Amino acid sequence: KLETFPLDVLVNTAAEDLPRGVDPSRKENHLSDEDFKAVFGMTRSAFANLPLWKQQNLKKEKGLF
Results as ranks from 00 to 15, higher is better:
residue 65 F to H: 15
residue 15 A to K: 10
residue 5 F to N: 03
residue 27 K to G: 03
residue 52 L to P: 10
residue 29 N to Q: 15
residue 30 H to R: 03
residue 48 A to D: 10
residue 39 V to D: 00
residue 43 T to E: 11
residue 38 A to R: 13
residue 4 T to A: 08
residue 20 R to E: 15
residue 27 K to T: 09
residue 56 Q to S: 10
residue 8 D to I: 09
residue 30 H to A: 07
residue 6 P to C: 05
residue 42 M to T: 03
residue 50 L to R: 00
residue 20 R to M: 15
residue 35 D to P: 00
residue 52 L to R: 10
residue 16 E to D: 11
residue 2 L to R: 11
residue 32 S to R: 07
residue 10 L to V: 02
residue 42 M to A: 00
residue 16 E to N: 10
residue 9 V to G: 04
residue 52 L to Y: 13
residue 22 V to I: 10
residue 28 E to P: 03
residue 21 G to L: 06
residue 12 N to T: 07
residue 33 D to K: 04
residue 38 A to S: 12
residue 60 K to C: 14
residue 33 D to W: 04
residue 14 A to R: 13
residue 9 V to I: 12
residue 41 G to H: 11
residue 32 S to N: 10
residue 8 D to W: 15
residue 2 L to I: 14
residue 9 V to C: 11
residue 38 A to T: 14
residue 17 D to W: 07
residue 32 S to T: 12
residue 31 L to H: 01
residue 18 L to C: 07
residue 46 A to I: 09
residue 64 L to C: 06
residue 27 K to A: 06
residue 13 T to C: 12
residue 52 L to W: 13
residue 52 L to G: 09
residue 24 P to M: 07
residue 24 P to V: 08
residue 56 Q to H: 11
residue 43 T to D: 13
residue 32 S to E: 04
residue 50 L to H: 01
residue 28 E to F: 04
residue 17 D to Y: 08
residue 42 M to I: 08
residue 50 L to I: 05
residue 44 R to S: 03
residue 30 H to G: 03
residue 10 L to D: 02
residue 23 D to L: 04
residue 7 L to M: 10
residue 34 E to K: 11
residue 23 D to R: 03
residue 56 Q to G: 07
residue 8 D to G: 09
residue 47 F to H: 00
residue 48 A to M: 13
residue 46 A to Q: 13
residue 26 R to L: 08
residue 42 M to D: 00
residue 5 F to T: 02
residue 19 P to H: 04
residue 4 T to M: 08
residue 64 L to E: 02
residue 49 N to Y: 09
residue 65 F to I: 11
residue 59 K to W: 05
residue 12 N to M: 08
residue 3 E to G: 08
residue 2 L to A: 13
residue 54 K to T: 12
residue 51 P to G: 04
residue 32 S to P: 01
residue 52 L to T: 09
residue 18 L to H: 04
residue 4 T to Q: 09
residue 60 K to R: 12
residue 41 G to L: 09
residue 39 V to F: 06
residue 30 H to T: 03
residue 47 F to R: 00
residue 60 K to P: 00
residue 42 M to F: 05
residue 31 L to S: 01
residue 12 N to P: 04
residue 10 L to Y: 01
residue 42 M to K: 01
residue 37 K to E: 15
residue 17 D to K: 09
residue 27 K to I: 15
residue 63 G to F: 06
